[in-house]
Every structure is written in C-alpha cells, then in structure tokens.
Computed example of a mutant assay.
Amino acid sequence: MANVKTADCFQALSDPSRREILLMLSKEKQNINAIADSFDISRPAVSKHIKVLYDAGFITITAQGRERYCELNQQGFDELKEWISFFEAYWTKRLKQLDTFLKTKHAKPKK
C-alpha cells in the first residue's frame, strides 16, 4: 500500500494514543487487531488513529492474508526531524553568540 503524506505530522502526534501506537510499533510491526487489543477504546477508534498516522506518513500498512500489519515508516519522520534540526541549529547559533558576547563583555582588561 503506497503512502502519500496528506496530514500534518504535529497534528498526528498531538494525541497520546497515537504516540503510544508509534511506541508499540517501534518494537515490532503489529496487526491492527493486536494494536486495538492494547487500548481501552473501540476498534473503530483505533482504526481512525491508525489512519491519521498513515496519512501523516508515520506508518505503512501491508496486507498479509486477511490481516493488515502496521509498521513504522522512517521516511515519515523526516519532516519532524527537519523541523527539529532547524531549531536545534538556530538555538546552537544563538547560544554561541551569547557565549561570545558574555566572554567579551566580562573579559578582564590585561594590566
């Protein structure tokens, strides 16, 4: 099943149940029934969560016989990784500038 990203990754991660599903899938791929059995919500509700994760590109779904298996999709995390990397670089640069400023501002004059 091809996965074309159609949802915002941050919206997909906003729900604790969806984050829990991703943590479950980080251990191994699982069929939808096994995922649903881990939650105290209806199977249709779990299916909706899975659809959101699929639409955001975080998981792939493959059919094996009558079962549908969910698996993490590493490429689905690229947008999130790029966003975080941007701010990591931003703050690293700002902190280095602050460090330089503080060192020059408070440097003791040589006698």
Rank of each mutant, 00 (worst) to 15 (best):
P16H: 06
P16L: 14
P16D: 09
P16I: 14
S17K: 10
R18L: 03
R19P: 05
E20G: 04
E20V: 06
I21T: 01
I21K: 02
L22R: 07
L22E: 06
L23Q: 14
M24I: 11
L25C: 07
L25P: 00
L25N: 01
L25G: 09
S26P: 01
S26R: 15
K27I: 15
E28L: 09
K29R: 15
Q30N: 06
N31T: 02
I32T: 15
I32D: 08
I32N: 08
I32E: 14
I32L: 15
N33G: 02
N33K: 13
A34M: 09
A34E: 15
A34K: 13
I35W: 01
A36S: 15
D37I: 06
S38P: 00
F39D: 05
F39K: 07
D40V: 09
R43N: 09
R43Q: 15
P44R: 00
P44D: 05
H49E: 10
H49T: 01
I50H: 01
I50D: 01
K51D: 09
V52C: 04
V52I: 15
L53P: 03
L53G: 01
L53R: 02
Y54P: 00
D55Y: 07
D55E: 14
A56H: 04
G57R: 08
G57C: 11
G57Q: 10
F58K: 10
I59D: 03
I59N: 01
I59C: 05
I59F: 03
T60M: 10
T60K: 04
T60Q: 01
I61E: 08
A63H: 06
A63P: 00
Q64D: 10
Q64C: 03
Q64M: 08
G65Y: 05
G65F: 06
R66E: 10
R68V: 03
Y69V: 02
Y69F: 14
Y69H: 10
C70P: 05
C70G: 04
C70N: 03
E71D: 13
E71G: 07
L72V: 00
L72T: 01
L72R: 09
N73I: 00
Q74E: 15
Q74C: 03
Q75Y: 12
Q75S: 15
G76D: 05
D78Q: 13
D78K: 11
D78F: 07
D78R: 14
E79V: 12
L80H: 02
K81E: 13
W83Q: 05
W83C: 02
I84E: 02
I84V: 11
I84D: 00
S85H: 05
F86G: 00
F87V: 02
E88N: 13
A89W: 03
A89K: 15
Y90F: 08
Y90H: 14
W91C: 11
W91V: 03
T92S: 13
K93T: 07
R94G: 02
K96T: 11
Q97K: 12
L98V: 13
D99V: 04
T100I: 03
F101M: 08
L102D: 07
K103N: 12
K103H: 13
T104W: 04
K105D: 09
H106A: 03
H106K: 06
A107M: 09
A107L: 13
A107V: 10
K108L: 15
K108G: 01
K108W: 06
K108M: 01
